[in-house]
């Protein structure tokens, strides 16, 4: 194998694309984790729901835009229902109880999707161009560009929301001291709802994006995602937006290069955990988390 600049650039593009997939999922997870500090494993189920709502809506309307909106809305609804029914009432219980509930919900959602839509993967073909552009020996597809543009734009938008708006200020205050935040006039239930709506809508968009990108969806598409998105937010620092973006990028790029150089030696999906464990030994709070 000859290592050329073009080869490296090609792997970088693969890595950035993969990173965008990770970011799309982890961004929503870091928001909902941050607000209640519950390990929301069912987030990966919300992501699966988004993919299926997206496909059904696309088949019905033949509009990618409408399908994205429907995926976001469907996932937001499922997310906020989970929060209201299962998480808010469990806030004063020990942490492992909502965690167990979350795992159960994840399995339940996957089984319900499988029972209604079938266990086998479904093709997700859209009218989006499948063109591939070539420049100096490096290939990039329209779908890769779409994926990256959408994810990086969404990341910026989310960052702006949390840094520049009242919702952002209220969310941060609530995370740091829920009781005092309430006493200062913040309607905390409403703020938690909004965070779950936002985070879950992102999961829905991510589900559909991944479906389009790989051309298929399945009820179990959330399985590896559930672990890997966790790795991304641990890597970046729980609850940190910037951390989720940087964590997703590192994981995506590292995975792409590792696969390119040592594809036969290291299992790809386990690699994420090796990176996470090594990092946590040296920096337990993650890259952008705060040491408490």
């Amino acid at each position: 194998m000859e290592i050329t600049a073009a080869f490296l650039a090609q792997e970088l593009i693969t890595g950035l694309t993969l990173g965008a997939v990770y970011i799309a999922i982890a961004l929503g997870l870091t928001i909902v984790y941050g607000i209640l500090e519950i390990l929301h494993i069912a987030h990966a189920g919300v992501y699966v729901v988004g993919a299926y709502v997206g496909l059904v809506s696309y088949v019905a309307t033949h509009s990618v835009l409408l399908a994205f909106l429907a995926a976001a809305a469907g996932s937001a609804l499922v997310g906020v229902v989970i929060e209201r029914l299962f998480y808010l009432p469990m806030l004063d219980k020990p942490r492992h109880i909502p965690l167990m509930i979350s795992i159960a919900l994840f399995i339940l959602i996957e089984e319900m999707v499988a029972n209604t839509a079938g266990h086998y993967p479904k093709a997700f073909q859209t009218s989006l161009p499948s063109s591939v552009y070539s420049c100096c020996g490096v290939l990039i597809s329209f779908q890769q560009i779409l994926l990256m543009a959408l994810v990086y734009a969404l990341s910026l938008a989310i960052w702006l929301i949390f840094e520049k708006t009242r919702l952002g200020l209220a969310s941060k205050a609530l995370i740091q001291d829920l009781e005092v935040a309430e006493a200062m006039g913040i309607e905390t239930n409403k703020i938690v709802d909004l965070n779950f709506i936002l985070g879950s809508a992102l999961a829905g968009i991510a589900g559909m994006l991944v479906g389009i990108y790989y051309g298929k969806i399945s009820p179990h598409m959330g399985d590896v995602v559930a672990y890997e998105s966790l790795v991304v937010i641990v890597l970046g620092g729980f609850g940190s937006i910037v951390g989720a973006v940087v964590g997703g990028l590192i994981l995506g790029v590292a995975e792409a290069f590792l696969a390119a150089f040592f594809s036969n030696i290291l299992p790809r999906d386990a690699f994420a955990f090796i990176v996470m464990i090594v990092l946590l030994i040296f920096r337990p709070q993650g890259l952008f988390g705060r040491a408490e």
């Binding site: 009242r166 200020l169 209220a170 941060k172 205050a173 740091q176 001291d177 005092v180 935040a181 200062m184 006039g185 913040i186 705060r290």
Partner: peptide
Amino acid sequence: FPYLTVEENLLVGAYT
């Protein structure tokens, strides 16, 4: 709110 700035703490006080 330890991880908010002084001014952000005041702005939370003025949230209503």
